[in-house]
Design a binder for these strands. Structure first.
Length: 817
RNA sequence: GCCGGAGUGGCGGAAUGGCAGACGCGCGGGACUCAAAAUCCCGUAUCCGCAAGGGUGUGAGGGUUCGACUCCCUCCUCCGGCACCA
């Protein structure tokens, strides 16, 4: 009898062995084979079973690749800058660096206990100067090429995190991190010109067939390209014209007013002359609203007449100019032409304020005089539009655009929803922006030779408001690199998404000191072949990374211009929230965190791995249940127990039928596990292995010892990527030397599987009436005959009109009468 | 509101247009045991039937097809994204 299955005793030993033998180490000086990567985590400290899903899936695939003899780069590092460290510093008076390093230690230990292998020689942490100096170096290059700039504009300010945020980091009007409603502030800040890459970011998506459609769609929507036309309207009594952006020039004869965003510069001209006494107050109220407040008004339209008129350049018509709450300064020109008949918002506004509604596009069943009860925004025939009447709306768009260009009062124009990436942060724990301000020379970049600009350590956290860097005399006091006089150092740090936008290229040769990346090696090892991470990064991280990779490409530093060939998004693991009672993502505040420690000490890491991979397809969201863990553990117990069966049967010749059945079941399992893992479905791969052990259990008394042993050893190899510790242990007990990682990946005999008997389904008029077991590869006639016999009673006295035969699958009779 | 994705036993989930419910959990019954746990065996969509067998069944309704969980149309529900983007 084998000893009882005792994961506590087995697992630490193998973890030590793998680390010692260096299975994950790969020399990138050699040729590339495969580069796989998990999104590097923020070192928050404790990992729960939900985090485990990502890493366990990655490790499963990694081990399979290793067994297949592939040379795989599979590194791990830390997205180590960010607010939690700084908040911990404020709260508990620990330096962020110390806090971060301690957390990294805990997380590495957790990875080890999960049995997860990485090439730790390539570990990087973005908070170390050796790493972030290259953020600064890249920033200098972008500054030189005009891709980084300092600009003043209304920006999102989170009063709780006390910093500005990029657009991508504002979710439903609140801060992505803490949910606090963001305020708009006019500040001078650092931006990266991602909008210059908008079209290339869109076009690149078409070359990523192995990314989830969902992610590509989200990015397309975020970039929000729209083709339209800028049209200039003359304004009565004002010298300069007013430019509006529209995607529907074809409706311009239907414009009955013009609307301005409250922030539009022209609005101030009319403050004194507008007819409504509360005009100024109205404008000020709108300007002071947070984005959230404006959105919370739920689409209610409000506006005021400015008292001024604009002239429609097409018709010469005078149109009243209004200020309206639904016009956004951030998009287009901050001014629109309003066509109530063909735009829902304009219709609502016109109805509320009694402005005219004029039909200019006649949709199906409409004529020039149709009275609308709601806006019609579809295509149709152009009517009431002077010389353009009679055209189709699409033709008219082109014709009117060309006309405006000829006459010089308009131009066709492409606009984007995407804004430039605001990278300034008024926080300590990030990469210092390498710039100084000199009284004589103004803004001066810190020369490459003086990098890195290192974060000071003489910092007092907590207490007073604002960025602690501003209070560090040693940091702010700088020397102007141009004139040598005293200067003030920039205290803003970079958005941490900067760090994660290029780390994958650094991993190829992470410790070089004289360059950001090793161009020669990166040319061979990039792009990442398989990138695994959560869908929450669909826009933020993945769009910034694509952007910076294109920039690196333009600088001649990397080979292609897309960094990740295959993207795999794993779903969340949820559990019942103690607060809401609903299924939610695990988090401390919801009291639904399952820590792996107790689980591992009770059942072992292999059990957690099996359960995590068995719960469902990894891209789907799944609920964690304790009963399911038991099932996984029972499976491993059964695998362990098969040792006895194999030992007892060692010398038995066995019955031919049972032996054949074991053999076929083994090959079938190999094929299924192989196919299922290749499509990232370990759940069905595990099911296939369960079927194999069920067959082994059924045939254990009758099959030959050799076949049982062969089946068992094959199973161990198939199972190793999923449950590495227990399989290594049994492999040794069976008398093998070394590791399963070097034991090869099993192959299957396709010919053997192909010659097995098949079961034909036999249908009569589409209903299943019988099944027949036949030899594979049977022709239509022979299969038809066998099937006819099986369903004779259903065919009796009827005329067979048609027979459909799908080889090795089914025969279908269509009968009459 | 717009754009995606998903609805299959008591539960998690399987099924290149070809035997719906693999595999697991749970449950019921049995074996072992003084007993329990563990383990093992049998059963488990639903309705009629002692059974053999048959009817029904993949959110609802229609359609294409010899044949639909799978493809098309309409609708419902849930989840996710965007949300006055002109």
């Amino acid at each position: 009898m084998a000893l009882p299955y005792d994961p506590q005793q087995i697992e630490p030993r193998w973890q030590e062995y793998w680390a010692h033998e260096g299975f994950a180490a790969v020399d990138t000086a050699g040729e590339k084979d495969l580069y796989m990567l998990m999104m590097f985590p923020y070192p928050s400290g404790d990992l729960h079973v939900g985090h485990g899903r990502n890493y366990i899936l990655g490790d499963c695939l990694f081990r399979m690749f290793l067994m297949q003899g592939r040379k795989v780069l599979n590194p791990m590092g830390w997205d180590a800058f960010g607010l939690p460290a700084e908040n911990a510093a404020i709260k508990r008076n620990i330096h962020p660096h110390e806090w971060t390093v301690a957390n990294i230690g805990r997380m590495k230990d957790q990875f080890r206990r999960w049995g997860i292998l990485y090439d730790w020689d390539k570990e990087i942490a973005s908070c170390e100067p050796e790493y972030y100096r290259w953020n600064q170096w890249l920033f200098n290059r972008m500054l030189e090429s005009g891709l980084a700039y300092r600009g003043k504009s209304p920006v999102n300010w989170c009063p709780s995190c006390r910093t500005v945020l990029a657009n991508e980091q504002v979710v439903a009007g609140g801060c992505e991190r803490c949910g606090t409603p963001v305020e708009q502030r006019d500040l001078e800040q650092w931006f990266l010109r991602i909008t210059a890459y908008a079209d290339r970011l869109l076009e690149g998506l078409d070359r990523l067939p192995d990314w989830p459609e969902k992610v590509k769609l989200m990015q397309r929507n975020w970039i929000g390209r729209s083709e339209g036309c800028d049209v200039r309207f003359a304004v009565e009594a004002v010298a300069e014209p007013l430019t509006v952006f529209t995607t529907r020039v074809d409706t311009i004869y239907g414009a009955t007013f013009v609307a301005l965003a409250p922030e539009h510069p022209l609005v101030e001209r009319f403050r004194a002359t507008a007819p409504d006494p509360d005009f100024g107050e109205f404008v000020d109220t709108l300007k002071n609203q947070t984005r959230l407040q404006r959105e919370s008004e739920g689409g209610d339209k409000a506006g005021r007449f400015t008292g001024a008129y604009a002239v429609n350049p097409f018709s010469g018509e005078r149109l009243p100019i209004w200020v309206a709450n639904f016009v956004l300064m951030e998009y287009g020109t901050g001014a629109i032409m309003s066509v109530p008949a063909h735009d829902e918002r304009d219709f609502a506004f016109a109805t509320k304020y009694g402005l005219p509604i004029r039909l200019v596009i006649a949709g199906p069943g409409m004529g020039p005089d149709t009275v609308l009860s709601e806006a019609y925004s579809g295509p149709g025939a152009v009517v009431n539009s002077g010389p353009f009447s009679g055209l189709a709306s699409e033709e008219s768009k082109a014709a009117m655009g060309a006309f405006a260009e000829e006459r010089g009062f308009g131009a066709r124009k492409v606009r984007y929803r995407l804004r430039d990436w605001l990278i300034s942060r008024q926080r300590y724990w990030g990469t210092p922006i390498p710039v100084v301000y000199c009284a004589d020379d103004g803004l001066v970049p810190v020369p490459d030779g003086q990098l890195p600009v290192v974060l000071p350590t003489d910092i007092e956290f907590g207490g007073s408001e604002g960025n602690p860097l501003e209070r560090s005399a040693s940091f702010t006091a700088a020397t102007c690199p141009k004139c040598g006089k005293p200067a003030r150092r920039e205290t803003d740090t970079m958005d941490t998404f900067m760090d994660s936008s290029w780390y994958y290229a650094r991993f190829v040769n992470p410790h070089i000191r004289d360059a950001m990346i090793d161009r020669e090696r990166v040319a061979r090892w990039m792009p990442v072949d398989l990138y695994i991470g959560g869908v929450e990064h669909a826009i933020l991280h993945l769009m910034y990374a694509r952007f910076l990779y294109k920039v690196l490409h333009d600088f001649g530093m990397v080979p292609g211009d897309e960094p990740f060939t295959v993207l795999f998004n794993q779903g969340m693991i949820t559990a019942k929230s103690k607060v809401s009672g609903k299924l939610e993502k695990m988090s401390k505040s919801k009291g639904n965190v399952i820590a792996p420690d107790a689980l591992i000490s009770r059942y072992g890491a292999d059990t957690e791995r099996v359960y995590t991979l068995f719960m469902g397809p990894p891209e789907k969201e799944v609920e964690w249940t304790d009963d399911g863990v038991m099932g996984a553990h029972r499976f491993l117990q059964r695998v362990w127990g098969l040792q006895d069966i194999v030992a007892e049967s060692a010398d038995r010749t066995g019955a031919a039928g049972a032996t054949e059945e074991i053999l076929v079941a083994t090959h079938r399992a190999v094929k299924r596990v192989h196919d299922d893992l290749a499509r990232y479905h370990p759940n069905t791969a595990i099911a296939a292995m369960m079927e194999l052990i069920n067959t082994m259990a059924e045939q254990q008394a009758a099959a030959s010892g050799a076949a049982l042993r062969q089946a068992y050893e094959t199973l161990l190899r198939l199972l190793h990527p999923i449950a590495p510790h227990v399989t290594e242990e049994i492999w040794r007990i069976l008398g093998h030397e070394g590791s399963l990682l070097g034991a090869g990946w099993p192959s299957f005999d396709a010919a053997l599987l192909a010659k097995q008997q098949v079961t034909l389904a036999v249908q009569v008029n589409g209903k299943l009436r019988a099944t027949v077991a036949v030899e594979p590869g049977l022709g239509a006639e022979a299969a038809g005959a066998a099937a006819r016999e099986a369903v004779a009673k259903w065919l009796e006295g009827k005329e067979v009109a048609k027979v459909v035969h799908v080889p090795d699958r089914m025969v279908s009779f269509v009968v009459k009468g």
